[in-house]
Design a protein around this nucleic acid. Sequence first.
DNA 1: GCGTTATTTAACTGTTCGGTTATGCAGTCG
DNA 2: CGACTGCATAACCGAACAGTTAAATAACGC
Lengths: 117, 117
Amino acid sequence: MQSEPDILSAKFAALADPTRRAILARLSQGEASVNELAEPFDMSLPAVSKHLKVLEKAGLISRGREAQWRPARLEPMALKGVADWLEHYRRYWDQSFDRLEAYLRNVQQGKDDGSRN
Amino acid sequence: MQSEPDILSAKFAALADPTRRAILARLSQGEASVNELAEPFDMSLPAVSKHLKVLEKAGLISRGREAQWRPARLEPMALKGVADWLEHYRRYWDQSFDRLEAYLRNVQQGKDDGSRN
DNA sequence: GCGTTATTTAACTGTTCGGTTATGCAGTCG
DNA sequence: CGACTGCATAACCGAACAGTTAAATAACGC
């Protein structure tokens, strides 16, 4: 049932909410029930439940079942998918870093041409 | 002008659209005008203009001004911000990272047990 | 079965999003 | 100047989003 089109968009969208990122941070320290997850937030339980559903549809978490609890746990490989997308761009910011480094070297030598900022 | 609250959310939200990711991919090969960027898409120009504004507000691109063109260029350090957030979770998916970490700990203690790899 | 706890679903609401068309505006060219 | 190019803004629209309260479901403990 994960024939979702454009799962990457779903992941990014899920991560675009601070509440959901906080939930992931909490889950990185272990499973938690909905009530536990909701506790830090000034928000109704159904709202948290909805956030969990978004995270689950994005594959970022999965849910278990223990008696009347439905613990959520992190599904880290989903985050790897995001990281893999980003990796393609790493060379661009590393390269910028290199240029900045070169610029700073020049400044230090009193060779700043003033062309930047 | 980047006093935006929750810039990370803005970045994730900007990345959550396949059109915008395609624009970034295009820009990774160099600056481009709005018309050039819009060309591959079955979409009006104002729509693309809006996407660019979203990307710009997220800091992912910046705009120049050359005569009547407003070329967009990639702002890669913004992506680094996203990568840094993700990095915190790397250990959860990357087994070899754990091994590396353990290895480095051991090296630092001069206690390398040679078990890497 | 009954009450309690944990969670989801339903229905509703205001806001944001992604697109449209129409219009405006800046800069270039003749 | 006036026409044309490149792009942005305005106004609008339907769909999706993030929240609410109220009701339903599920599993437990008596």
